[in-house]
Simulated scan of single mutants.
Amino acid sequence: MVLTGTLVNGVTIIIGSLMGLLFHRIPERMKTTIMQALALAVVLLGIQMGLQTEQFLIVVGSLVTGAWAGERLRIEDGLESVGQWVEKRMGSSGTENTVAKGFVTATLVYVVGAMAVLGAMDSGLRQEHDVLFTKSMLDGFSALIFTTTMGIGVLFSFIPVVIYQGSIALFAVQINRLVPQEAMDTFITEMTATGGVMIIAIGLKLAGLLEIRVANLLPAIPMVAFFVFIIRLFGG
């Protein structure tokens, strides 16, 4: 089912939040070790995806041009500014805003990121949910941590996550029906490989080994479609 990965993601956020309400104190060493283990799993997933490429030049070209566009547009800076603005507007020191602050902060963490976009597209185009299943584990654990500090508002972040990722997955299904199968197969393969490189970057960032503006690489996905179109246009 197209929405399987998205629904699982929503459920893990709920479960993690409920567990966070029960466990108030988690040793810092345990948090670090679990997050590092998840980061290694994310890197492994990214490598597996990246090795699927059949036209490596498309991957390289898409990442380079996508990074250029992302840096020019300052996507990551823009997203951070939105997050800071929302938190400033809704997260004042009063206790009445605790629920809103938890909801907004968690939503930004779960929705703003390459894994949300790539995972939802993978669900819609290939009916493969590994990226969203991995994201679900990360989100569930972080929901537990967030809830211990920000309260029950974190739980309600599953609503925008399901709507956002579900919409992308359903849109990807429509694209799949309109584009010729041969072109779609090439796009899916190279989109998966290009996304895999971004997933590796996310894993390394989670492990604290590399600081990279992954959101600024997101334009690489539409660039894959552009290069596939150019190759087909000129009979490559």
Rank of each mutant, 00 (worst) to 15 (best):
V2Y: 07
V2D: 10
L3F: 14
G5Y: 01
L7Q: 13
L7C: 15
L7S: 07
G10L: 07
V11A: 06
V11M: 10
I13L: 09
I14S: 06
I15D: 00
S17R: 01
L18S: 01
M19L: 05
L21F: 14
L22T: 13
H24G: 07
H24V: 10
R29S: 13
V42A: 05
V42E: 09
V43R: 12
L44R: 06
L45Q: 04
G46C: 01
G46S: 05
M49H: 15
L51R: 06
E54H: 10
Q55S: 09
L57R: 04
V59E: 15
V59S: 04
G61C: 09
S62L: 13
T65G: 04
G66D: 04
E71F: 10
I75Q: 09
E76F: 03
E76D: 09
D77L: 05
S81T: 10
V82A: 10
G83D: 11
V86Q: 13
V86E: 15
R89Q: 15
R89T: 14
R89Y: 11
R89V: 11
M90Y: 14
M90K: 15
G91Y: 07
S92G: 13
G94F: 09
G94H: 12
G94C: 05
T95F: 09
E96H: 12
N97S: 12
T98V: 11
V99N: 02
A100H: 10
V104P: 01
A106P: 11
V111K: 12
V112E: 00
G113N: 14
G113D: 08
A116V: 07
L118Y: 14
G119L: 05
M121G: 01
M121A: 06
G124T: 01
Q127D: 09
D130K: 13
V131G: 03
L132D: 00
F133D: 03
K135N: 08
S142V: 02
I145W: 00
T147V: 15
T148D: 07
T149E: 06
M150F: 12
V161C: 06
S167P: 00
F171T: 09
F171V: 12
V173W: 02
V173R: 06
Q174W: 15
Q174I: 09
I175Q: 08
I175E: 13
R177L: 04
R177S: 14
L178F: 03
P180E: 02
Q181M: 08
D185T: 13
D185P: 14
T186C: 10
F187I: 10
I188K: 11
M191L: 06
M191T: 13
T192D: 07
T192F: 07
A193D: 02
A193T: 15
I199W: 07
I202H: 02
I202Q: 02
G203E: 00
L206D: 05
L206N: 15
G208W: 09
L209E: 03
L209R: 02
L210H: 01
E211Q: 07
I212D: 00
R213E: 15
R213D: 09
R213A: 12
A215W: 03
L217E: 03
L217T: 13
L218H: 01
P219V: 10
P219G: 05
P219C: 15
A220I: 12
M223R: 06
V224T: 04
A225M: 12
I230W: 04
I231W: 00
R232S: 15
